[in-house]
Design a protein around this nucleic acid. Structure first.
Lengths: 340, 340
DNA sequence: TGTTAGCACTCGACGTTGATGAGTGCTAAC
DNA sequence: GTTAGCACTCATCAACGTCGAGTGCTAACA
């Protein structure tokens, strides 16, 4: 049985009301607040059908109805198909979060996550998949005041890492640059893994400062380790405390501890190839999160693609969230194109 | 009226019990769990006196007693004076959080805050006061893959900042180094403020790449801005959700929003000159925080001194917290001495 | 055949009541 | 000064009744 126009209108009205108020919606409320054009009794008959079909849940016999995850799924699918007919709508309020400055890749991600969290008042997450094949672009040693040196490594995808390493005291800025130049000439274009091997070999037969070489190798190793793992950024974790869904402290704690486990977070943010994807309740496949939803949007940097997303209660304003995420993810893709 | 030995023992027993259980302590509980050597009735008489004197509160007539802030103050003062007689005790479990690596100053702070939060299971905060007089040690431009450059500035206090700036496309690594060298020769030893003025003057009469000079000036300006403000690091904010004191969601939200306001946080972390300082309840001077306490310890880096602290419910294991903070703050001071 | 008014019914929310028990304060005896 | 005994207080909890929002069903209506 497929839903006729009136059933869809009623279902949609219930979802809108419920998203706004978080309280079960009754038949009279609908006639008051939406112009369906029939009496509560008729609405009740329709609601009874919708319940039968699995689109509505009834917390108990004398409360109103609550949309089921199936209802949200339908609602979201209709939004998506409406959008795919025309241009995807963008959210102009995004602009105030991004200014014209040339940003490092990690700053862009941070800005984006903050923007999403603050615009949606939900928890925003970004996942950058590991790039084990990242190649070195430049190595540079910078003198530090206490005689050690700052080692800066820049990769071809614009990722910057630095660390302090110990060096022989006789090396001044020129000396460090000479080393930087040699290292860059030899290492540029190689992956982080290759560089480690090269340095081990090189160190054995070279008279260069062993501590420098080992420092470079260690940072390369650390970067390789970090780079091969997915990295995660979270913002607005305790926004969720304002939602009545989480007025139970235990639920809130469960939610927050999920956010602190990068593995689970990464599996929640798995992206598919749509511009915006929505997973609702049990679709997430995690029992603890069965009454939450995740919306995410992909962005690309380099050859790779990351995911920007939002986690929140199943009752969330999907339309607005999807619009915001889509807009910001597009913006990120553009910014990354500039960085490279 | 001053407290005799027995009153002190009883008060101390009540505080210890209450810190452990978070439940009002009755007279029988004390005789069972502590060896005072008198009957519950006698304890009751003493407790009545202690209540009269303001050391104990009575939530209602037939619950046990709860220590007042005055009681915690006495308790903490006695701990402090016991310690000042001998060596301050250290907490050996701190070691596993710090390894031998040479760390950047900001990494040290981050590690310390994480260690405190995880050892105390409370919210840890570090405040670094602004250093408007910070001087430049080295400026270095590093080529980025897309033709722009990474500008790295190292200050005399070991603070590192970098940003991406646009440069003319003709500059390769050697060209950038030549500029870096000139810039460093001219700027080293000057404050961030001076550097901005110098660059403005220099740019006017120089043929050097204006975009580089402006990029350096902008980063110097940004660093000066950041450096003149106190900076704050927080860790373990939602540890407090596990404490029954915060089972009221509104209280938890108030607490968490205080943590998000750097100004209030900085005023909470104001340090005095003791090695470890404790402020309890209303001593904090913030109505919203009247049932919280703050413990903090100073550390020094460069000529300046920062504060490492803990915020939590008034009922916290002061002894352990003070020990942990003292140990870590000492460790930080040592590490900073190495960095410089 | 679809829509609607009417009405009995359900069940959570909320307030009241009473029993329970931990803990106190007082008194009198030791 | 200490202690046993005892009346008293008051939060907690379960049981119970009331209230009202909302439903489902039925019969009448267009």
């Amino acid at each position: 049985m497929t839903l006729d126009e009136r059933k869809l209108r009623i279902l949609s009205a219930i979802i809108d009301d419920y998203i706004e108020t978080a309280a079960p919606v009754g038949s009279r409320t609908i006639t008051r607040r939406h112009n369906i054009g029939v009496s509560p009794a008729t609405i009740r008959n329709e609601m009874s059908d919708l319940t039968e079909l699995g689109y509505l849940d009834q917390p108990h016999v004398s409360a109103g109805r609550v949309p089921s995850s199936k209802a949200y799924r339908l609602y979201v699918d209709r939004l998506l198909s409406a959008w795919s007919d025309s241009e995807l709508p963008v959210d102009p309020s995004v602009n105030e979060y991004f200014d014209e400055k040339a940003l490092q890749m990690e700053d862009i991600v941070k800005t984006a996550v903050q923007a999403v969290s603050s615009l949606t008042r939900l928890t925003a997450v970004a996942v950058l998949p590991g790039q084990p094949e990242m190649r070195i672009a430049t190595l540079q040693l910078v003198p530090m005041p206490n005689g050690s040196a700052l080692l800066v490594i820049v990769t071809d995808s614009g990722i910057v890492r630095d660390t302090v390493i110990h060096v022989s005291r006789r090396l001044d800025m020129d000396g460090l640059y000479a080393i930087s130049r040699t290292l860059t000439e030899n290492m540029a274009g190689h992956t982080l893994m290759e560089v480690q091997a090269m340095l081990d070999a090189y160190a054995a037969r070279s008279s260069a400062d062993q501590r420098v070489l080992m420092g470079v190798r260690d940072l390369a190793a650390q970067m390789a380790r970090q780079a091969s793992e997915d990295s995660v950024a979270v913002e607005g974790a305790h926004n969720i405390l304002s939602y009545p869904e989480f007025s139970d402290l235990d639920k809130a704690r469960t939610f927050l501890s999920t956010l602190e486990a990068p593995d689970r977070l990464i599996s929640l943010m798995r992206d598919n190839d749509q511009p915006v994807s929505v997973r609702i309740g049990t679709e997430l496949g995690i029992p603890d999160m069965a009454d939450c939803s995740v919306v995410n949007a992909g962005f690309s940097y380099g050859g790779c693609c990351g995911t920007l997303g939002v986690i929140g209660p199943m009752r969330m304003p999907y339309g607005q969230v999807m619009r915001t995420l889509y807009t910001i993810s597009q913006r990120m893709t553009n910014l990354f194109a500039e960085v490279r």
